[in-house]
Design a protein around this nucleic acid. Structure first.
Lengths: 120, 120
DNA sequence: AGGAACCGATCCGGTAGCGTAACGAAATCG
DNA sequence: CGATTTCGTTACGCTACCGGATCGGTTCCT
């Protein structure tokens, strides 16, 4: 299932997607925030603050702040773990799934229309 | 030359690359800054502040600030246009090219090791 | 020549993220 | 039990970026 790309394709893909993300602006997510969001939605739960911090290689306050921001935007939600009430479990939301679905569409579309050999 | 991807591949690719970018940290580029950098290096020159502002759909100060930051990091350089001294021409640098080359490597490597069907 | 238009940079107040260091709550240990 | 460890959060001072307005400097237009 791997994807093979040339350097030109790789950068072209990144160029197209970042450009479009900036253009439509809407949610101004940090690279870290986006990374957290993808981690939550692509890796099987449960997700905790310290777990994410370890995975991303950042401190815990970074995760807390990112969850604050994305929580306000409805992209994630937090629930106290009742089995160990010290923990907080990060949960997915419908809105977050929709956001990533749009990101996915953007990536796919950008990849498809990448440097069409001749014939623009 | 297009690349065809499934939604899972698209998000998986983005996940792997952003995660690695966050992990190695180094230069903490904004999405906007990265977008500007890619625009400069992938689109034929000349590049001007107002041109980039129009392309990205942002205001001119945003471009100026981003060029300040990336200029300090040696990723781009600015030269006054002698034919029309109102303009500033944004130029590429060796260091900037190297940075994008590493980004390209990262994207390619992430794409290659994407959800290897069985047998890791 | 002089006014208008243009270009990039700078100033302003405000917002959001950062790292370090603490904190309170909860579980575990001895 | 109390002491210690483990969580996530908050406090603090700082830095970077934001949009909007404005600024000099330059060119264009008549």
């Amino acid at each position: 299932m791997p994807i093979d790309m040339t350097p030109s394709q790789a950068l072209g893909l990144w160029h197209a997607v970042t450009l479009e993300l900036v253009r439509q602006d809407r949610r101004d997510l940090t690279l870290r925030q986006l990374s957290i969001l993808l981690e939550i939605y692509l890796v099987p739960p449960p997700h905790t603050v310290r777990g994410l911090a370890a995975t991303l290689g950042v401190t815990k306050p970074v995760i807390t702040r990112a969850l604050d921001t994305m929580g306000e935007q409805g992209l994630v939600s937090r629930v106290r773990d009742e089995r160990d009430r010290r923990n907080v479990v990060i949960r997915r939301t419908v809105e977050g799934a929709l956001f990533l679905e749009r990101l996915s569409d953007l990536v796919i579309a950008s990849g498809r229309s990448l440097a069409p050999w001749k014939t623009p």
